[in-house]
Design a protein around this nucleic acid. Sequence first.
DNA 1: CTCCATGCAAATCTTTTGCAATCCT
DNA 2: AGGATTGCAAAAGATTTGCATGGAG
Lengths: 148, 148
Amino acid sequence: MDLDVDVQEAFVNFLRGAGLNVTRARLAVLRALAELPRHFEAAQVWMALRSQVSPATVYRTLELLERAGLVRKVELGEAHAHYERTFGREDHGHLVCRSCGRVWEFSGGSARRVVEEAAIQNGFALSEVVIQGYGVCADCQAAGAKRV
Amino acid sequence: MDLDVDVQEAFVNFLRGAGLNVTRARLAVLRALAELPRHFEAAQVWMALRSQVSPATVYRTLELLERAGLVRKVELGEAHAHYERTFGREDHGHLVCRSCGRVWEFSGGSARRVVEEAAIQNGFALSEVVIQGYGVCADCQAAGAKRV
DNA sequence: CTCCATGCAAATCTTTTGCAATCCT
DNA sequence: AGGATTGCAAAAGATTTGCATGGAG
């Protein structure tokens, strides 16, 4: 997968700049992300690192990665949070299937512009944009979807 | 506030159509919504109905109202869910201030169209669109915002 | 009269936190 | 050395659920 030196370097720089330590656990979490699906949950991270890093540290590290701008928390309509890597990714929106849970992505540029415009008009300092559609994917429609 | 006969009627029709009972508690919840802010949390509902309706029933009823299309669950970046009435409201997006938590709305028509277009291309049956921006509002910027 | 709905309390489940032990720098 | 970090287990908090009782049709 991706995760070139640049990404690790970016995290290290972020940590140093914030006066934080570069630890084995933090690097392990970052490395684990490269092996996970595009959208993953916290549990997948500490299962992948079973006995290397505790759940608490995974949560703590994901928050750091978020602050470093390398990871983004994504709300997929489920009870628990999901995350996605932001490095090597373009701006995009999500189509979430409420039946099977899968996620499709689409280019979010023009939708983002609408939000940016609204932010400007309100004197809002925008830091993140979320563009999502919920519904039922083609496969689940064909199979007779459960939820709408 | 709004809540004309039409809205209550819509809920009653939904309940009847689903073979569910029209109960005092369910109507009380619907009526309470008209007195609450545009964006509210479950706790505000059962505080407004203190000793009339239990928390469990509030959650159960909000879910029915959601299914009836009268209420929409909104994710505002906090640990607990928020809701908004959908009746008498136009399609809109949200600008959420991460510092004070207030929410601004803006017309979401054109952003929605982008999502609809993506749905069509993927054979997706779209049922809901979420357009949100997170950042810091003008007031909080002036006051020296906490989070970005 | 027969289900459906409600309240209560207990259970769930994810995420957060306190604290003593351990790791970075 | 000296502060930062970790793991563990307990805590927290929102939402859900089982079950016996009361309500709607």
